[in-house]
Design a protein around this nucleic acid. Structure first.
Length: 303
DNA sequence: GCGACAG
DNA sequence: ATCTTGTCGC
């Protein structure tokens, strides 16, 4: 009888001997995996902060006040040119109180499961710059455009037949590695972070069909929260229907130093639209910034 | 071997 | 991520 834990080492690498794609070699993937493993040792998935969650009735000085949002937009002219953006919102008013941008040329490609190695460096730079300057608006919590622990890396798994749902499922073991962009930024910046996914990253038997069924089962309320419980029994995050009648939910997961419960509550309070306001503002302003940059580049061409 | 694969 | 058109609603 095989011990299922032994499948742990079956980290299957696709050998890319293709010389064209030097930037995603298996050596790179190996380095990335090791780095994720190391950073994950510092991951905290429970509430770990000094501020408090404001209540409707009373406002305290120690309440959460400054919530950040980060996003990256790309040039349509040159896809390697990107604009990293950090915004900070006042949690009470949801108004933007700080914004900063940074242009970069990205050499690391997007590889599913390794988004952080492409996007985190720019965003961490902007955060670090803000912290260095002792800016009073430095965020107490950061929302990230991408997942937290809802992340499929390191499939230490086995297939089994789930008679209840009449489908085959993948069991994950405790050694499962889950460390998305939000975790990566959270640990590196030592900041509470929440991951916001706009589409579902398949983990532990969680597929669109399964989530859709769970959503349809709760049609009465305007704001729904569906725990994303995988076949193994682990809760990876929450699917949230943030807008009334919206078919497409957002996917919330713990990044760092926050529990899923607290994260969900805060995201709900910042949702004027489908996407929570810190992420939405970062996205809008980032696009705007790169659009103006491209307009300038066009004008210079004419000269 | 094939499909799937956050942004 | 980005490319796309119109359309509905305030």
């Amino acid at each position: 009888m095989e011990n299922p834990i032994e499948t742990e080492s079956e980290e299957q690498e696709q050998e890319q001997s293709n010389s064209q794609d030097s930037s995603t070699s298996s050596q790179d993937r190996h380095k990335w995996i090791t780095e994720q493993d190391n950073l994950r040792e510092k991951l905290i998935t429970a509430d770990s902060f000094t501020w408090k969650l404001p209540t409707i009735s009373q406002i305290g000085a120690e309440d959460l006040r400054f919530v950040g949002g980060v996003d990256i937009s790309f040039s349509k002219d040159d896809p390697s040119i990107a604009c990293g953006t950090l915004v900070v919102l006042d949690f009470r008013t949801l108004q933007v109180v700080f914004q900063d941008f940074s242009f970069v040329t990205l050499s690391v490609p997007y590889v599913a499961g390794f988004l952080a190695f492409r996007e985190a460096p720019v965003l961490l730079d902007i955060l670090e710059k803000m912290k260095r300057s002792d800016n009073p608006f430095y965020p107490q919590l950061l929302m990230v455009d991408g997942n937290g622990i809802l992340h499929p890396r390191g499939k230490c798994s086995t297939l089994y037949w789930n008679t209840l749902h009449k489908q085959s499922c993948t069991i994950f073991f405790s050694i499962t590695i889950c460390f998305g962009l939000a975790c990566h930024i959270g640990v590196m910046a030592n900041l509470p972070t929440v991951g916001i996914g706009k589409s579902l990253h398949h983990v532990d038997g969680l597929h669109h069909s399964r989530v859709r069924k769970l959503l349809e089962a709760k049609e009465n309320s305007s704001k729904d929260f569906i725990p994303l419980v995988g076949c193994s029994g682990q809760t990876w995050g929450v699917a949230m229907r943030s807008t009334q009648g919206s078919i497409k939910p957002i996917y919330i997961s713990t990044g760092h130093r926050i529990s899923l419960q607290t994260a969900t509550a805060i995201v709900q309070m910042t949702c004027k639209y489908r996407i929570p306001e810190p992420i939405r503002q970062a996205d809008i302003r980032s696009r705007d910034y790169i659009r103006k940059f491209e307009m300038n580049a066009r004008l210079k061409q004419i000269d």
